[in-house]
């Protein structure tokens, strides 16, 4: 019942929004400045039919997955090492604190010089944007692992790699998953900027391309696609979280 009611409220709100938009577009009377929702819907249909929408979305999504995967494979082990060992923390802390505030987006001009225009630029920028939330979140998660759990495993003779695998990692997993979601969100923001400036394909490129063609309805269609994909990736991560951590189902805030 609550779900049906929620859906109704959702549809009602979006319908009112679409109506207001429609009215405003009539008032403005320019399909360049503010196309009506119907025109945008038509642009969605067209871009979907000629494959442009899904192709560019697929390219951006693939870059995202690649970049985040590389970031996770490097940042999570480093974060665990930094969380567990003072020597690692001492060695890397300053570097991380120096590089972290430099937004991934600020690397775009230098990355343009290094990589040129192409797929490697957005992947690098996204990797960079994802890396720091992951490393910091993992290190903090590992440092905050309940000391009693570590003590309990020590009294059972569980130490070393086994302890990392079966105590530290699961105990830090909620923090790691939160930072993974932050990392993906940061990557999504970065991909649009990176593709807008320095890639010959992808959603960011498409938005800029259609803007220069003055095809505002198509621009809006692609912007909506970014929103939808951003929402879907986060929903996917939440589902993954629920799967990886069935034990946290009722205790997660």
């Amino acid at each position: 019942m609550a779900r049906v009611g929620g859906l109704l409220v959702y549809l009602r709100t979006m319908a009112i929004f679409a109506l207001a938009w429609y009215g405003l577009s009539l008032l403005v009377g320019s399909r360049l400045l503010l196309p009506s929702p119907l025109l945008v819907l038509d642009a969605v249909r067209q871009s979907a039919l000629d494959g442009e929408l899904l192709r560019n979305a697929g390219i951006s999504l693939l870059r995202l997955v690649l970049a985040v995967a590389v970031a996770a494979l490097t940042a999570i082990p480093l974060g665990i090492a930094m969380g567990l060992s003072r020597a690692w923390r001492d060695a890397f802390d300053l570097l991380v604190e120096m590089l972290r505030p430099v937004a991934g987006i600020a690397w775009i001009p230098l990355a343009l010089f290094i990589f040129g225009i192409g797929s490697r630029l957005p992947i690098f920028i996204m990797f960079y944007s994802a890396f720091f939330p992951l490393v910091i979140g993992t290190a903090a998660g590992v440092r905050n692992v309940d000391a009693r759990l570590l003590a309990a495993s020590a009294t059972m003779g569980v130490t070393g790699v086994t302890r990392i695998r079966h105590v530290v990692l699961p105990a830090a997993l909620p923090a790691i998953m939160v930072s993974l979601r932050l990392a993906v969100a940061a990557s999504w923001t970065a991909v649009v900027a990176a593709e807008l400036v320095g890639a010959p394909s992808g959603l960011g490129y498409a938005i800029e391309y259609y803007r220069s063609m003055l095809a505002t309805p198509t621009v809006m269609a692609f912007i909506a696609m970014i929103g939808v994909l951003g929402f879907l990736t986060d929903a996917g991560l939440r589902a993954l979280e629920a799967r990886l951590m069935p034990w946290a189902k009722d205790i997660r805030p």
Partner: peptide, 17 residues
Amino acid sequence: PGPDRGVMFQDYALFPW
């Protein structure tokens, strides 16, 4: 610590996962 001495902690310290 060693497995020859088992400990039951005040607040149990169960592994939540």
